[in-house]
Write a protein that binds this DNA or RNA. Structure first.
Lengths: 343, 343
DNA sequence: AAAATAGTTGCACAGCTGTGCAATCCGGTC
DNA sequence: GACCGGATTGCACAGCTGTGCAACTATTTT
């Protein structure tokens, strides 16, 4: 039995349904139907086909299947900063959920030159992906429009492009940001600072603006520092800049936990500040490190599981439209830890 | 011009080479050759084809191309613990390198039930992946043999399966582990502990054994604690267990930086120990957090870029063999920070 | 027993591409 | 002008699958 695979040729090539059919003594259609859900095959032939398939090591060729059906079962995830804790977690959950739905994730790294991003993003069209999930602010709106023009199903996460077509998922950035202000305000902070990054994205801008607006409404001084990429090192640098200034802030809202970790470390280890006594810090995302005992960061939790679930739902029930879609909005939950004085 | 796409039908379907050919007034072959590298097309027709393709938004269907050629240009990455900093970084670099080589990464999450892993792993066969890169210890050797039996090109990273066929990439775990012992020994540590995880993998076992062997050779007391998954929380728990013991260790080798971070935090924040004065800690991997100023962890750097480069090289030059391959071995570099007393 | 019904099976086609082979075209040479 | 060589082009096939349609078998109904 087992030798057949070798005897048929040293080619070690993949087995086709034709070969299985020959071995089982049935037509190729029977093989196809055996592996097609809800097709009509008698238990007898099904059994023989399955056995022959097992013996030969047959696997349905999804390239051919995708060619004839209009679904490839491939979903492409477009992501930059893949080694960021937040994005990594998102990919982790998404791949798991997609697999549970019998789909498979194709990951497209959208970091780097714009031209490279375009060729990379074109892969989603090459492979006729069922949907494209854009998780980063990196690809231009114009590149996304290219995908849309080719009939791609595009789902944007945490973006804010006023483009007709794609479905959009966002979180309650503004609500949370003004809640962040309340936290710091009630803790008695008088001089506030917002730490952002130089690149900026829709979510980050929304958080920044809402926080500043809330502070100004309450008549509290606030300034904004944008520096480098959204990374730990940027938080460190921002702290050096801000804390060496004449009048130190006593309340900080970092638009990202990663920034917050950097800021906290620099504030404590380089400026000897005690948190939350002399300085209160609020982050955003609730990455794993925010819960580590060196940080104990008060922050806002992104509902990653809910977002992933909704993404999978959207993929299955797609109603293409040419109008701008109302974004689906998920709530972020405040997570109280120890980087802000209790009221 | 632009209306054509809509007029041809509301289907918003993908454009085929046939349609491009019709528009450009050439045969379909000419279109195919225009997009095939090194084929013979006159500059004139090439120009007309490119223009028609541009106008219609044509994209070569890689499902069909993969069907007829024997390369799909898909490479599947099998990974568990995707939200681990080390693995996330690995995926980040690999996706980038693969894209540069005109390939695309398909990510298969191998966490969860064994049956689920099998169905997930089967995707790599379904899509006729050019190669399968196994980055986690999760899939059984038997599942890997299934892939091999179907003619898959399998590359194992940091594994130790004595299976004939796959190419293997490892790092110098044993050398580094005995080097870790030297660090702690020279720092004057008298009572050593190794912190590992309950699940264990080839790399982790190698590090543990080599460290223990080096300690016993030198006649230094050493004990091993294996606990939970390879995560921060396990490091914390291990510290609680080990440090509440009567005679506290003064030197710790954590098989992973993540464990080390947890151990360090618990040692300092729960037991009030000062590092490196009262306790020296060595980690492994050099994840980003190891360099954060709350940790300043002395550790060993995995040569992720080199590994990724070599993986891509292996994919292109594949010589299938039935014998057990000698693993390609990369050196890890010690990174001196502040969690070990200088000699 | 004949007819009707439901369930199976095989044929043939469609889906989109790359490529060998033969035919064609273009330019240059005698 | 005839001939030759090389570049270009079109035809037709192969690669593997899902599925409508018709033919077939087996089972039930009248």
């Amino acid at each position: 039995m087992k030798q057949d695979k070798l005897v048929t040729g040293q080619k070690k090539s993949f087995v086709s349904a034709q070969q299985v059919a020959a071995r089982a003594g049935v037509s190729r259609s029977a093989v196809s139907r055996t592996f097609t859900n809800g097709a009509s095959v008698s238990p007898g032939t099904r059994q023989r086909v399955l056995q022959a398939a097992e013996e030969l090591g047959y696997t349905v060729n999804h390239l051919a299947r995708g060619l004839i059906q209009d679904r490839s079962n491939i979903v492409s995830l477009v992501v930059a900063d893949l080694n960021t804790p937040y994005q990594a977690k998102m990919i982790e959950v998404l791949t798991r959920r997609l697999q549970a739905a019998n789909k498979v994730a194709m990951v497209i790294n959208s970091a780097g030159e714009n031209a490279d991003v375009e060729t990379a993003l074109r892969q989603t069209l090459h492979y006729r992906a069922d949907a494209t999930i854009v998780l980063s602010g990196q690809p231009n709106a114009s590149l996304i429009e290219t995908c849309l023009a080719n009939g791609q199903h595009v789902i944007l996460v945490n973006r804010d492009d006023p483009v007709p077509g794609p479905e959009t998922i966002v979180v309650t950035n503004r609500t949370a940001a003004s809640q962040a202000f309340d936290m710091l305000h009630r803790a008695g902070c008088k001089k506030l600072v917002v730490i952002g990054s130089a690149v900026g994205s829709a979510s980050l801008n929304a958080r920044e603006q809402a926080f500043v607006a809330a502070a100004e409404d309450a008549g509290v001084a606030v300034s904004v520092t944008r520096l480098g990429p959204t990374a730990y090192a940027s938080g460190v640098e921002a702290a050096r800049l801000v804390l060496s200034h004449a009048e130190q802030p006593d309340g900080v809202f970092c638009l990202t936990d990663l920034l917050a970790c950097g800021f906290l470390d620099a504030a404590r280890n380089e400026f000897g500040l005690s948190v939350p006594d002399e300085l209160c810090v609020v982050g955003f995302d609730d990455i794993e490190q925010a819960g580590w005992s060196s940080y104990e960061l008060t922050t806002f939790r992104q509902p990653i599981e809910q977002i992933a679930d909704h993404v999978v739902t959207l993929i299955d029930h797609h109603h293409p439209t040419d109008s701008v879609q109302e974004p689906k909005r998920f709530q972020v939950q405040p997570v109280w830890r120890k980087s802000v004085r209790p009221r």
